[in-house]
Amino acid sequence: MVPFLDLKAQYRQIKPEVDEAISRAIESTQFVLGPEVTAFEGRFADYCGVSHCLAVNSGTSALHLALLAAGVGPGDEVITVSMTFVATTAAVLYSGAKPVFVDVDPVTWTMNPALIEAAITSRTKAILPVHLHGMMADMDPIMEIARRHGLVVIEDAAQAHGAEYKGRRAGSIGDLGCFSFYPGKNLGAYGEGGAVVTNRPDLARQVILLRDWGQEAKYNHVVAGYNYRMDGIQGAVLNVKMNHIESWTEARRSVAADYEGQLANLAFARPQPPGHSRHVYHVYAICLPQRDQALRILQDAGIGAGIHYPVPVHLQKAYAGLGYAAGDFPVTEALANQFLSLPIYPEMRPDQVVEVVSQLEKMQLVAAA
């Protein structure tokens, strides 16, 4: 048995620290925001290399508030990708704007900068690249295009805690960066959580107001806001996990390197991070034409595997109203039909990697017969 993710193993490793931190948070009775959240915000801002971190109650909320803080609203367009979780698109729609998709690059699997300018119109307000699976999008050309056209850049870094692009951390390059701390993330809370990071004090102030009912002071509501505050207990848990995020990240990268070595002689497309990037492997995905067969073989062998994501957003029934159709984004659609996510987590052992790859080898032998 090889689980897709083993949160119990992680909890066992940090149980005394976490239990003490949760108890401290409960004893303080600071259950919403409070000192634990403030302490985490400072640590995570330092980790990302930014001036401000504003903790919220989910990654979706982070995206929504980042868009609103940037002035995105009805009548605006936001350029993003369809190869993502639906929250990216939903947040744009929450703001009243229209998502405009571009295809992804066939090698990096992230936003293809060469396609952005053709998608820009007089209504374009922002570009929203997604750092898929833990690898950052090609940010330099994205930023150059955005600055030339006067557009805001918001990084969807929900899967990219600690990822780097040319020495800069995820969330620190665009005007704003958005993170999720959903339990399965590389930095996961014990419930929902998220954050917006930025180097711009004006945007930070807007997010602070918007996450807490638009209050400048108690019962002094200066803008129409939301109840998007982080719980104190989640702040306490995340503070503990900040002590370990780098060691866990390097452990993930070590597992990914094991996969690379084991898969070297198999005809599966694998993630190819540029030499200047640090991939943090929230997901380790491969591409293979017989994906569904491979998924069944792995599951039958007791190996956790999944697909991120089997149906791109532009082909989801819920977003049919955006007006896209099959064939509009051929690279995205091809990846959706071939992606297979293999188990990866910091506590995964080398023998478990061997077990996963041995099942894939069997599948390849059957396919070749």
Rank of each mutant, 00 (worst) to 15 (best):
L132G: 03
Y345R: 02
V86F: 06
I145C: 01
D175A: 13
Y47T: 09
A369V: 07
F339Y: 14
M139P: 07
Q352L: 04
I127R: 12
G184P: 03
D351F: 06
Q234P: 02
L209G: 09
G235H: 05
Y182E: 13
L238G: 07
A160K: 02
A62R: 10
Y281H: 06
A91Q: 04
G75K: 07
Y47K: 07
G96L: 00
L295R: 13
A264P: 02
V32K: 12
V78Y: 07
A264L: 05
L335W: 09
S95W: 03
Q290S: 15
A336R: 02
G327I: 05
G59E: 07
G194S: 09
C48S: 14
Y165K: 04
A326S: 15
P310Y: 11
P271F: 08
S341V: 02
T124V: 08
V72S: 00
Y11V: 01
Q293K: 13
L315F: 11
L176N: 04
A326P: 11
G327H: 13
K218Q: 08
D212R: 14
T124L: 07
G134N: 10
V86L: 04
S254L: 08
A9R: 05
Q293M: 12
A118Q: 04
P350E: 14
G177R: 04
P346L: 10
Q272D: 14
E77Q: 12
A318Q: 15
Q262C: 10
